[in-house]
Design a protein around this nucleic acid. Sequence first.
DNA 1: CGGTGACTTGACAGGATTCAACAGAAGTGG
DNA 2: CCACTTCTGTTGAATCCTGTCAAGTCACCG
Lengths: 231, 231
Amino acid sequence: MKIEDVLERVPMFKGLPTEQIEALARIATVRTVKRGDIIFSEGQDADGFYITVTGRVKIFKVSPGGKEQVLHILDMLEPFGEVPVFTGGRFPANAQALEESKVLFLPRSGFMQLVKGDPSLATNLLALLSMRLRQFARLVEELSLKEVPARLASYLLYLSERDKGTNDLELDIPKVLLANVLGTIPETLSRILARMVHDHYIRLEGRRITIIDRGGLEELAAGARAASEQR
Amino acid sequence: MKIEDVLERVPMFKGLPTEQIEALARIATVRTVKRGDIIFSEGQDADGFYITVTGRVKIFKVSPGGKEQVLHILDMLEPFGEVPVFTGGRFPANAQALEESKVLFLPRSGFMQLVKGDPSLATNLLALLSMRLRQFARLVEELSLKEVPARLASYLLYLSERDKGTNDLELDIPKVLLANVLGTIPETLSRILARMVHDHYIRLEGRRITIIDRGGLEELAAGARAASEQR
DNA sequence: CGGTGACTTGACAGGATTCAACAGAAGTGG
DNA sequence: CCACTTCTGTTGAATCCTGTCAAGTCACCG
């Protein structure tokens, strides 16, 4: 597939005139990465940003002890690593391919010129960054204000909502990764899932989860006292 | 003071032509708030954003149980509540005045037009939002990957750095608020400060803190094992 | 078939919150 | 100016969640 065709489908570039798409395509380069490959690391000098073409990428931070916190999981056609394009300097986090993926690299120079020249691109970007800020605000809220069961409940409800309200969910990521998304570790996740099963909130078979008490999950997510209340 | 003069000094509007400053001034309104006043609440419909003129404002989230997590503390001439300007919809968090303050309100309509017309304003905004994203990434890292002593150590070092590396710090916020910034509660903060004093990292008199072991603090901030190691 | 990765479970320790009580500072009003 | 309330900060004891350490199962792959 031609790069132009990819760029055209990127939401961020919605409404860009063809010639500018072509200009972008000329400066873009494709990079193929294998599962587990690091695309960039925190602190690394940033001279451009990326867009996923196929595959998925996680953005994450690591503690000195090796614990991970996932900030984003990016699907197809989502830009990432764009922050240092506007602030200059270095990448604030790490990016790693979850699967064999193709990513597009757009060098900073040239891109900035384009932004300056095209107000609709600029406002698209403002919308994108604002959306990210919203997500972060929610993430901070979850991490700081809620306990793990509440976060997990939120996540399950989010999955359900994303699929038009089904009760039959299928985790599309391994549980280790889910744990890191939720800001915890696999062991804890495992236990809380078990507890939720025991308390008849959900049914669980491997990565298949069925919601059987949506109301209960919603209470949990809202921060109600933990499951298995036993006062 | 005239509104134009204020707007001119706002970093975000750096380099804007005078006539556009004047256009902004025409749509802006001033609002005076007392200490503790809520400027906007999470979920409230957003039809514009704010800029601090005098005083300070905190942006925060609240858990159902009443615990607070502070996202930002804004000094003079800093914009806030700007996210929904670009995403539409509602405010993602609450804003409350820490002191008697004057804030400027800029309605969304009109502002967006200005953004579309002025590329340098747009890039200023992109830089602003990107900076915020960076801060959030760091906040998430602190909350998720570090324990309270490490966060406190980071914060103290940050204060020191902000004042050109002094060892004599003066907290400009009450400790309750600092606790909420660090994602904890006053009791815990109090104890950890006491421990740091006991371990000769700092000296403490009310809100005056003197760093006496910077290296030690740096280790703590990096995530080394907690103070008062006693294995 | 040995080996690696994903996942689970148990025992345990430890950090942090909760509940409670209290002292000092600050601000209010008579 | 003093009594009183409120705010701020500190300390103690008990509890709980969560992470750590360790072991073990199951599935999949070379």
